[in-house]
Design a protein around this nucleic acid. Sequence first.
DNA 1: ACCTAAGCGAGACGGTACGTCTCGTCTTGCG
DNA 2: CGCAAGACGAGACGTACCGTCTCGCTTAGGT
Lengths: 201, 201, 201, 201
Amino acid sequence: MSGEAEEAPRRHSIGAKRNPDTAEAIRAAALDILIEEGHAGFSIEKVARRARAGKPTIYRWWPSKAALLLDVYHRQKRDVEYPVTDDLESDLALFLASLLRYWSEGPAGDIFRSIVAEAQSDPAAREALQDYIAERGDQVAGIVSAPRNGPGPAPDFPPRIIADLVQSYAWMKLLIHSLDEPQENARLAVRAILRGAMTVK
Amino acid sequence: MSGEAEEAPRRHSIGAKRNPDTAEAIRAAALDILIEEGHAGFSIEKVARRARAGKPTIYRWWPSKAALLLDVYHRQKRDVEYPVTDDLESDLALFLASLLRYWSEGPAGDIFRSIVAEAQSDPAAREALQDYIAERGDQVAGIVSAPRNGPGPAPDFPPRIIADLVQSYAWMKLLIHSLDEPQENARLAVRAILRGAMTVK
Amino acid sequence: MSGEAEEAPRRHSIGAKRNPDTAEAIRAAALDILIEEGHAGFSIEKVARRARAGKPTIYRWWPSKAALLLDVYHRQKRDVEYPVTDDLESDLALFLASLLRYWSEGPAGDIFRSIVAEAQSDPAAREALQDYIAERGDQVAGIVSAPRNGPGPAPDFPPRIIADLVQSYAWMKLLIHSLDEPQENARLAVRAILRGAMTVK
Amino acid sequence: MSGEAEEAPRRHSIGAKRNPDTAEAIRAAALDILIEEGHAGFSIEKVARRARAGKPTIYRWWPSKAALLLDVYHRQKRDVEYPVTDDLESDLALFLASLLRYWSEGPAGDIFRSIVAEAQSDPAAREALQDYIAERGDQVAGIVSAPRNGPGPAPDFPPRIIADLVQSYAWMKLLIHSLDEPQENARLAVRAILRGAMTVK
DNA sequence: ACCTAAGCGAGACGGTACGTCTCGTCTTGCG
DNA sequence: CGCAAGACGAGACGTACCGTCTCGCTTAGGT
């Protein structure tokens, strides 16, 4: 998680190039604060204090609060699965379940919540989030349109919309703090998206 | 909308009861600030200044920033449609389109964004948001399960999940500032949810 | 001097008007810091910490570091004498000696040094200092031109120049930290100014 | 003056000994900054940037800001006159006028102001200033006690006090930014010091 | 008709955080 | 070994808001 550095040790400049220990200490401090106090208690000031770093050092490398949050989020061990088997529905269901688990178990969910919140006021964060979501969307769309021996998406149906539906469902559950809903719901949502929620005509 | 109150006129106490003009001036000021400066520039301080109100007056009636935001959001003329015809798919498509339009045209989208952001740090806002989304979810579920002469949801399928899928799709588009996507996408999303995005087996 | 308040007690707002305790605590803290650490260690930040005051509270009432310094200087008990007897020379000598003693005995000298230093970079401080020196100059010129039974300044001689000469002599001794020169020198300086340092022609 | 070095050219180490170009570029940059921005805008950081020098290079050779300032001040062409004729009064008046002119015309006044200011907080600067003023005092005292055919100082009167009076008068005018007073005043000040400002008894 | 009680504006207050600036120290790697 | 370059910990700068507090005014409603 944050590792050994409850209180960062004294560090010094290692000359005219970036000290990786400093960068790591800052990330660790940021993560610890998010875990302990959540998004509300997060501030660059606190990160600097905890990491025994100067504020300018932080601003030198992460131009905004959002940039630091995104960095920390990215470094989280990401054990979300993007499975590709012959069964599209169970692939997506597995992806969704693992995403929800990823967010609800570790600090990742809190961090992502912070990023989304930050993106509502900071344009830079917004852009970063858009890029991120585009990338993840492509990844999920990749699951959808992977060649498989079994039913795939209708040929005239944009895989990206399927990906969006799945991800947006997870987003909402995250943002209203309802990650702990029964897994059944997520499975049903995927079934609806792929096979339809209506009775056959 | 906010209209006349570019600069609130001087008001005074009207004795031992709440002055509705004051409450209204505060709401109007809050709305104006959101329109002009967005969520980033919103602060209780500015609202008080603009409404010519004392900060304690605001805190007396709205215990948190989120409470004020929600109040303002609720007072917005809500011309989102909840149609019920015999065609479920076009009902939902119409609802989704009108929600996206509602958010993208006026200040409502910005306000709602602020509320979601606020809810990520303020527990009170979180609760209010959960209540709100439950209520809206019920409303949309009402569309889904309304009796109609035509195909409805599969009897074993919870209408609430359909409602969640539709709304969460709208949320994500709002939160990543992509409300201006082609309407076609929204229509396709609804089609997927109801009829499935897969080829028939 | 600074008084009892080594650590300021908790204070609160007393409503919509200035709390004199706060102002006093700030002045006392400023003075203490100047005494203990001198001009080099003086910062608004430290004053705020020591006075248990918020920085904005200080900036609200003293727009610049120099303003606070001047205020503190003014509140110093000023036992500099402006005597008027029939003997102009001993009047001025007494004034000069008491000014030098005033600066060398208490913290006043250090404070005034700080003000002069500050005035070299801060235009506001410069102006304040100019006003101050003008006022003191008038006071000293008042000694010079007071009606007396005994020799006074030559009628065509501006008293202000005499005042400037006396004061600037004190300034230099202050600024090069030579306040502890023998009193004889000061007396000789006054004698020169009034009676001339040259042999009679 | 600083002339050519608006932007210092790239320089490199010339091996294991001091590069005089570097030292010169640093002095020039320091001077330029003082001229353009005055004491307030002066910082080692800016000097290094402008001179294309590393900060440690500056600290290596000038241990404090004051040391650099004094160095720059000394290198100024010093066209202050120390005349010795048979007329002591006009000699001193000429010296004083030329000192005031020297300070008011070029950057020398600003630099000297900076040195005095710095000396109020930096003990090293203080000492350097004391040495400097002693040296200049001796020089002026030299004017006073030079053998001349005409009235000189009273034999029992220390020439150094006369020198101090003249110089301190100039200091104050410098430090309160009143160098532009009418020359007449300076002449009167010298007359007072030498011949007395009082009516004869 | 008075008197009390609350609403209200105003704004001071102790704080926290912001993002920027400079300080003086430290290293690296080129020449 | 001198030097340019620049990262670094430290901490001050002046500003924006936060949420709480008190004042002094105004008026409605109970007596």
